Amino acid sequence: MARLFAFVFLLQIAMAVVALISCLSAEPEQIRRLPRLVWAVVIVLIPVAGPILWFLAGRVRPGRGAAGAPRRPLAPDDNPDFLRTLDSDKARRDREQFERWEEDLRRREEKLRRDEDPKNPELRNGDA
């Protein structure tokens, strides 16, 4: 039973330390509801509930952004500006070039088939 109490005590201390570091290192726009100093006092003086309150109500959750703050995309495919550039002129030219290459490849393969098939004179004459 003493080990359980020691474990819970160490867990409480660890939570308080992590919450206090998070609170003191947070940017001002990442702190909600109360001033930083009040949050630090709540974390230190209220044993288990203080750190839990800080993580649930005191800081802006990662990925949500502060109220009024511009949100940054997390990945290029989430960025609307990046997605618009995919259909730019360069992308259109690249698609056209790719289509020309595919058509050229089809023509060359067809020519090779005609040249390799001596039994079928129709293919040799290009009537197919």
Rank of each mutant, 00 (worst) to 15 (best):
M1V: 08
A2Q: 11
L4A: 12
F5Y: 09
F5D: 09
A6Y: 02
F7H: 10
L10H: 06
L10E: 07
L10F: 10
Q12V: 03
A14H: 05
A14I: 08
M15T: 01
M15V: 00
M15N: 06
A16R: 15
V17A: 03
V18Y: 04
V18H: 03
A19E: 02
L20Y: 08
I21A: 02
I21E: 00
I21D: 00
S22M: 04
C23M: 06
L24M: 15
S25R: 15
S25H: 11
A26N: 06
A26P: 03
E29W: 14
Q30E: 12
Q30N: 13
I31P: 01
R32S: 06
R33D: 07
R33T: 15
R33G: 02
L34T: 05
P35A: 06
P35V: 04
L37N: 07
L37P: 02
V38H: 09
W39E: 01
V42T: 13
V42P: 01
V44E: 00
I46P: 00
P47I: 09
V48F: 11
A49P: 00
P51T: 07
P51M: 04
I52T: 10
L53I: 05
L53Y: 04
L56Q: 08
L56C: 10
A57D: 08
G58W: 01
R59L: 02
V60P: 01
V60L: 03
R61K: 12
P62E: 09
G63N: 06
R64A: 08
R64C: 04
A67P: 06
A67H: 06
G68E: 05
G68C: 08
R71L: 15
R72I: 12
P73F: 05
A75C: 13
D78S: 12
N79P: 03
P80T: 08
P80Q: 08
D81N: 10
D81Y: 11
F82G: 04
L83F: 04
S88I: 05
R92M: 00
R95W: 07
E96V: 11
F98S: 11
F98P: 00
E99V: 11
W101T: 11
E102V: 15
E103W: 07
E103D: 09
D104W: 12
L105D: 13
L105I: 13
R106S: 08
R108T: 12
R108F: 06
E109Q: 12
E109H: 08
E109K: 14
E110Y: 14
R113M: 06
R113I: 06
R114C: 07
R114H: 11
D115Q: 14
E116M: 14
K119P: 00
N120W: 06
P121K: 11
P121C: 01
P121V: 09
L123I: 14
L123C: 02
R124H: 12
R124Q: 15
N125G: 04
N125S: 08
D127P: 00
A128Q: 11
